[in-house]
């Protein structure tokens, strides 16, 4: 979109003004005035809160944490205290694990969907997307019902005599990972499926004629050509996992402490808006850093020059 809207190299001032006002010469791309509503919306509901949050995170007005020693006191506390650093690292590692599992679980599904589903394609896509229609709380709560002390899984295992005492599934971080993978894997599948769909099957046939087995064809041709989709899915799932909150609140029984949970506590329980604001910004920046890193890795390994 940006490329369409931005004028070509070195336009004259008058021309640029006319374009900005949507009065461009006949044949000009979409008049800029049309994007104004979207820009206004983003400015009010996205940019302004961000700015507000940055202002809040600066310790000017003084918070509940006592008299500020400097404007960046909250940040100093966050990045200096090993506890907060650990929470930050936990958040990123947790998101990474969820994303990696989503990738490994989602790729075969995407492959099956594109290559083997045939007339069931629409049905599978529907089944994939259908859970997104229910509330994330419902889906997450389902896991609690399944894995509760006297839940479905424990009952079956005990009836079968496999275990005597109910297993406490809900206490470890495992169930939080499972719950989040469940919620996020459709994004991974759809991202990979769309890139798989774009692959010319003849490329794979070429590889086979040249002596590559099906396995080697996959690793040398198919997989590299879907790196785009993998990257999209990876970033999507990683970002969503990074900011996920409800799932972790309901599952995991407090065994895992991530930044979003901490922010929630700071806002609702401690009511330290200053520190909470700083945390959100740290979360945002760390997510952005991860995004840039992933994009760079993908650019190097993906289809070169494309």
């Amino acid at each position: 979109m940006k490329a369409d809207v931005e004028p070509p190299a070195c336009p004259k001032r008058g021309a640029r003004l006319r374009r900005v006002l949507g009065l461009g010469p006949a044949g000009a791309a979409v008049p800029l005035i049309w994007v104004l509503p979207a820009v206004a919306f983003m400015a009010i509901f996205f940019v302004a809160p961000l700015v507000d949050n940055v202002a809040r995170s600066l310790s000017l007005a003084g918070g509940f944490s006592g008299a500020p020693t400097s404007a960046l006191a909250a940040y100093a506390k966050l990045l200096g205290d090993p506890y907060y650093l650990e929470v930050l690292v936990t958040t990123l590692v947790f998101s990474l694990v969820v994303t990696a599992i989503s990738l490994v679980a989602g790729y075969p599904v995407a492959y099956f969907l594109v290559r083997k589903s045939g007339r069931y394609y629409s049905l599978i896509v529907f089944l994939l997307v259908a859970p997104l229609l229910t509330s994330i709380i419902m889906r997450t709560f389902g896991w609690r019902v399944l894995l509760a002390r006297r839940g479905f899984v424990n009952s079956i295992l005990m009836d079968l005599g496999i275990i005597d005492v109910p297993i406490n599934f809900l206490s470890g971080p495992g169930v939080a990972v499972a719950g989040l993978v469940h919620v996020l894997v459709p994004f991974m599948v759809l991202a990979i499926a769309s890139s798989l769909q774009g692959i010319d099957r003849q490329l794979e046939e070429s590889a086979q004629i040249l002596g590559a087995s099906r396995m080697r064809t996959f690793f040398h041709i198919t997989l590299p050509l879907t790196l785009d989709g993998i990257g999209t899915g990876f970033i999507l799932v990683f970002m969503l996992a990074n900011g996920s909150f409800v799932t972790l609140l309901l599952l995991g029984g407090g065994s895992i402490q991530t930044l979003p949970l901490l922010i929630y506590q700071q806002f609702t329980i401690t009511r330290d808006f200053n520190l909470a604001g700083a945390m959100s910004n740290v979360l945002l920046i760390s997510a952005l850093i991860c995004l840039v890193l992933q994009l760079r890795i993908l650019k190097r390994r993906g289809v070169k020059g494309k």
Binding site: Q202, L203, S206, Q208, I209, S213, P224, K304, K306
Partner: peptide, 30 residues
């Protein structure tokens, strides 16, 4: 025999060159 064990060469209409490889890597693939 599967295609990869037939020892044939093939040129497709749209060439089917591997877009993620250089010319040399394409030729070296077989």
């Amino acid at each position: 025999l599967p295609p990869n064990r037939r020892g044939l060469g093939m040129v497709f209409q749209n060439y089917s060159l591997f877009p993620h490889m250089s010319v040399a890597e394409n030729i070296a693939f077989g």
